[in-house]
Amino acid sequence: MTSLLEVSGVSKTFDGFRAINDLSIQISEPELRAIIGPNGAGKTTFMDIVTGKTKPDTGRVLWGARNESLLGLSEAAIANKGIGRKFQKPTVFEDQTVWANLNMALRNKRGPFAVLFHRKTGEDEARISQIASEIGLTDQLSRMSGELSHGQKQWLEIGMLLAQDPRLLLVDEPAAGMTAEEREKTTDILRHAALTRAVVVVEHDMEFVRRLNCKVTVLHEGHVLAEGTLDHVTADSTVIDVYLGRADA
């Protein structure tokens, strides 16, 4: 595995509250990583900084083999570098079919006129079929997306991000609101996606994280508290004290 993303010495303060405090995290390619921690630990701010939504006060965010700085780039420019983000609430085009959603998301080099006159190709069809199979929606391609279950909408949005062929996929609490069967399927989707890219999952559901079977980073007060396997970090007395032992965890 090679280093893809390096967050080094990053800090961010909002109105006197230090959301990120000298945070350093390195993500490889390919890799599946879970990030856990109590509310206010800095998980969302970390993703905001990586995607350009929030600018840090100090530190570096480096990308790719050339260690290119992402700081100062727009959200769109960072997305074009190959960083995709999925928020907790699924956002799909509900009045369009599953097929149409995936087709719109395909990463094609099209100018404004090319988009207007684009015709589907065999390559597009094959790619859509492949993604639909990966996310378990092959038999739902002709269905309106608004008719899908919550879990299926989550899978469709993951598929739409995969259609853009990101090198890094940031996924925020994908298990929220899912049935046990849907959570199981979601871990399979994410584990498969991480075979060829970096996938970072922010999650509270410990059983979901256990099924991911990956390296876990625990954040607390904006910095890394512990890192390793789930068994390793959950046995850490400090992690138990500040996160696992909390009533609101």
Rank of each mutant, 00 (worst) to 15 (best):
E6R: 14
S8T: 13
G9V: 01
S11R: 10
F17N: 11
A19G: 05
S24P: 04
I27P: 07
E29V: 13
P30H: 08
G37H: 01
A41Y: 00
T44W: 00
T51Y: 02
T54C: 01
T54H: 11
D57G: 05
D57P: 03
V61E: 11
R66Q: 15
R66H: 15
L71G: 06
S74I: 08
I78C: 01
I83T: 06
K86Y: 00
E94H: 14
D95I: 12
T97F: 14
T97L: 13
L102A: 02
L102D: 03
R107I: 05
N108M: 14
L116S: 01
H118M: 10
K120Q: 15
A126N: 06
R127G: 13
I128S: 06
G136W: 04
D139R: 14
L141T: 00
S145R: 09
E157P: 11
L161T: 08
A163M: 15
A163N: 09
R167F: 13
L170K: 08
G177A: 05
T186H: 02
T187A: 04
T187W: 03
D188A: 12
D188F: 15
T196V: 15
T196H: 12
R197A: 03
V201N: 00
V201Y: 07
D205C: 01
L212H: 00
V218E: 15
G222M: 04
V224N: 10
V224Y: 13
V233N: 09
T234I: 12
A235F: 08
A235S: 14
V239N: 05
D248I: 14
